Amino acid sequence: MSKIIIAPSKYVQGRGELGKIKEHTKDLGKSFFIIASPNGVKRVKSVIEESFKGENVTLVFEGFNGECSKNEIDRLGNIVRSKGCDVVVGLGGGKIFDTAKAVAHYEKLPVAIIPTIAATDAPCSALSVIYTDEGVFSEYLVLPKNPELVLVDTDIIAKAPARLLVAGVGDALATYFEARACVRSNAKNMSGGNATKSAFALAKLCYDTLQSDGLKAKLAVENNVCTEAVENIVEANTFLSGVGFESAGLAAAHAIHNGFTVLEQCHHLYHGEKVAFGTIVQLVLENSSLEEIKEVIDLCISLGLPVTLEEMGVTEIKEEELRNVAEASCAAGETIHNMPFEVTSDDVYAAILAADALGKTYKA
């Protein structure tokens, strides 16, 4: 039995670190292909250009079309080749990171990830989540290596909308519970091995940090300031969750998230917001104690994460739609099959309704 833990080659976090990007990337290449949203470019382009000022370096900024799909990956790969770039940079949020990692993989180039938000645990992973052009989950692309660099400037992240940091907490919330399920079932992690004790410890530390600092960090970011609590939550959302999920494993929560992508009324939600509700559904599937479920739901309520179907956008409960969610959650190859017991679509359907009822009860 092989135990495997993987992580980015270098993780850098702190206030003002983007201004030092030249030093952090000096060994990666000389022509940088930077994938970002138009707003992302507007926020940080001048900082990046100032850092490289006077250097023999080419910076190519390219707008992201909004979806990590095969068509977008192919489009960007063509530009990378035409421009002769030798480093791919993903700047922004989760779908940009996954796109940048996929482009770098296919072009056989190093990749640097620069979050401007802490909304997902995607930055550190050797994984890209591929969607259709319409935003429906398609597949996981497992990559042969993690990013060469993850560069996190917490001054920038503290100025992003608080909802994005909270969404990152929702994504990170699943890490410990999915890791625990995988350890119990002896399931393989994302790199094809079993969890190390260190990976599981990081997953538990992630959850403990969310409980201790989540609300404090949200309140600080709502006031556009970076406190120690914000630093801790950014690390939990980005590094602890990233290494924890990848090296300990995914289970039901993320599979249920994938199931909810089939509902158009949930498309307005961020990834982590759906994962948070999926975590509650997983706890119901496990028949976890009321104390544990209440602890998770109370954290979600304090942060504004969804704990009911109505908050997920499902204002009218239709059995056929929820059964479609349940069936998609249990599709062949989904991570729900890493649970330490067999899970059917009927089980997921029942757990979704029970989780909704629990959410309504604790909100009341």
Rank of each mutant, 00 (worst) to 15 (best):
F200K: 10
D208C: 04
K70H: 08
D347Q: 00
A364V: 09
L141N: 06
A357T: 15
P115Q: 12
E222G: 00
K159A: 04
I35Q: 10
T227W: 04
A276V: 10
T99W: 11
K145W: 02
D208P: 02
E334Y: 05
V225N: 06
M1G: 14
E292C: 02
D298M: 10
G168K: 02
T132V: 06
A326N: 08
A158V: 00
I79C: 06
N324S: 15
V47K: 11
V88F: 03
V243K: 08
A251D: 07
I114Q: 05
S198W: 14
P340T: 12
H257K: 07
N194M: 14
T25R: 03
V234R: 01
A167C: 07
G193F: 06
Q211D: 12
A331S: 15
G170L: 04
E319I: 04
E320D: 14
K216L: 14
D356Q: 12
E264K: 08
G242P: 01
K83A: 12
F33Y: 15
T238H: 00
V88K: 03
Y106A: 01
T308S: 10
K108T: 09
A100G: 03
N232R: 14
E311W: 05
T335A: 09
L283Q: 13
A220H: 05
H337N: 08
F239K: 06
A328W: 10
E134W: 00
K360E: 15
A118M: 01
I4P: 01
E334S: 13
T344D: 04
R43Q: 14
A181S: 13
I301Y: 07
K20A: 11
G40T: 11
I297D: 11
F64C: 05
K30R: 15
G77M: 10
C182T: 15
F177H: 12
I113A: 01
I96W: 06
T209Q: 04
T175D: 09
T120E: 04
Q265I: 08
D133C: 01
V57F: 00
G214Q: 10
V166C: 03
I34D: 09
E72C: 02
G135P: 01
G304K: 08
E311L: 05
D208N: 13
I233H: 02
F341D: 02
M312C: 14
K204N: 12
E107S: 11
E17T: 15
I4L: 13
C206F: 05
N186C: 13
D27V: 12
N189R: 13
E134V: 07
S345C: 03
P38T: 07
S2Q: 14
V243R: 10
V262T: 15
P8T: 00
G29N: 12
A326K: 09
P38L: 04
E228M: 03
A248D: 09
V343T: 01
